[in-house]
Nucleic acid binder design. Structure first.
Lengths: 159, 159
DNA sequence: TTGTGTGCAAAAGCTTTGCATGTTG
DNA sequence: CAACATGCAAAGCTTTTGCACACAA
């Protein structure tokens, strides 16, 4: 099946990236770290640390919360996942390799998360960097709004 | 002194707005609520709940954490302060009456907060609302970057 | 007088840390 | 075999909650 072949290719690519990162930083390549990476890229879209911990447990891995948090930090540092702080709740993560950079729209009625991309953001970054004399490294834009009942048809995930 | 006169005018305006809000919602006009509003508008720029709690205590008010959180929630609902979630730390607030709407730039070196405004954001909100069929209510944009040592000269506040 | 708001302290929720054990390099 | 990662549980921090008392309406 074509889908599965793409999936396998993606998995081997991200594992390779993580392995290189660990080697370059003289960190250990433990089975726990690769298991977490693999499951994130196999399944989840937006998720928090606790959802991931539960998920690993349900799938018969024996991995502690400390390791989950530690590994999420490493994956974030090497760019394979992105951290988000939506609202006041737990930190939300999403896999980033193979995804176009995008921002988020959150429904105030049902908390579902949508993604969008707008090139004007790069222009804003550039202008503000120039004016305020900053090297802008990244941005976080979240729009909040009401879906008028349309969420159920198109949502990808929940916060 | 001109500055003081403006300050007094601002204070009486925001107290009036809060009072109207409380009356309209059949909430009580307690001394604690007005004390918190007054001190926020008299002093703080960006602050978190705990900083405000400490500040009130130092100034010989006897106000509990529960009341601080409760009042911040009310002030946020009636638009006199704005809540922010920068990074993974505590919720940050700022007074909003009399301030133009703006977004934030945070220095990754020294955590200082700068403000800016760009009209292209309204355009983005409008486009995305139309495309995704949402009524966009608000946005949160934060830029992260490096100041190249310029922060000390111009910063307003720290996270 | 009635019921909401307050203070206090305890609890809850997310994340980090300390320590003993296990495993990678 | 030495250093680092893990698991577990406890601690930390921010925020919320429960309860008795105070006070605004």
């Amino acid at each position: 099946m074509k889908q599965t072949a793409n999936q396998d290719k993606l998995l081997s690519e991200v594992r390779q990236i993580f392995e290189n990162y660990l080697l370059e930083n003289k960190l250990r390549r433990t089975p726990e770290r690769f298991a977490i990476l693999t499951e994130i890229y196999r399944r989840q879209d937006h998720f928090d640390a606790d959802q991931l911990y539960d998920f690993m447990k349900q799938n018969n891995y024996h991995i502690s919360r400390a390791t989950v948090y530690n590994t999420l930090e490493l994956l974030s540092k090497c760019g394979l996942i992105i951290k988000h702080q939506f609202g006041q709740h737990a930190t939300i993560f999403e896999k980033s390799y193979g995804n176009a950079q995008h921002d988020h729209l959150i429904c105030l009625d049902c908390s579902k998360i949508f993604e969008f991309c707008d090139p004007r953001l790069h222009q804003i970054e550039e202008s503000m960097g120039r004016i305020l004399k900053f090297n802008i490294e990244r941005h976080a834009l979240t729009l909040y709004g009401h879906c008028n009942g349309a969420c159920d048809k198109t949502s990808k995930d929940k916060v």
